[in-house]
Amino acid sequence: MKVGLFIPCYVDAVYPEVGVACWRLLRHLGLEVDYPAGQTCCGQPMANAGFEDKAVPLARKFEEKFAGFDYIVAPSVSCVAFVRLNYERLLAGHPCATAAKAMDIVEFLHDVVRPAGPLGRFPHKVSLHNSCHGVRELGLSSPSEQHIAPFNKIKDLLSLVEGIEVVEPERKDECCGFGGMFSVEETAVSAQMGLDKLRRHIATGAEYITGPDCACLMHMAGVAKKQGLDIGFKHVVEILAAGL
């Protein structure tokens, strides 16, 4: 099984430690992983802003960079959802192999690797941030709107971590207000949503907020710092890999 590690542009630039955690965790689980050089962005920011055409050359580049892998794994649910749900259309007329192979790392670990044994050690109380695209596009957990049997793949994985206590905030999958360009176009609503979300996470008494998407965490961290709110942020992978 050949795994291609996709570290999206903003994770590369802002959260290299999350990339490191992905690499270490996947290697720890005995997987053959490669990180193709020269990868940049999947094109989602431009497409969500209304300039899908600007994403097409990036989709072509992505196809090239990630040719030949069995799975393409990334620590960012919205980037993965973008590739999976849009690339076939964006690359219309050209072969598209990546859409079907792209997986969020939580989803990949949960559904494909299925680690049985204990993973990292993280003796802290964490509040789980269920990112919208993880919930409603990739199916990482049962959406709060739907009357289906409840499940949560992130929680399942975190149960393999030693010493951890996992809680969820009230309104467990309400959006934090990042939304890519939304955060710079609808600045007031975005910041208010971020603040509301932070308050609910903090109300759980957790020391950290953890989630499957660095973009949500980056947004909330920026709002928290501006508002002087004190809580830590960790990507799920950092917790799974803690101490490995």
Binding site: I7, D12, P16, H219, G222, K225
Partner: peptide, 28 residues
């Protein structure tokens, strides 16, 4: 910088992941 209306700017690391990765490969 509209991001700064609601956010404090993030701190950028000295090395992005693609640079850190060169060290990881060596380590490996």
């Amino acid at each position: 910088n509209p991001w700064a209306e609601g956010h404090e700017m993030m701190k950028f690391p000295k090395k992005p992941f693609h640079k850190v990765f060169e060290d990881l490969e060596k380590e490996d």
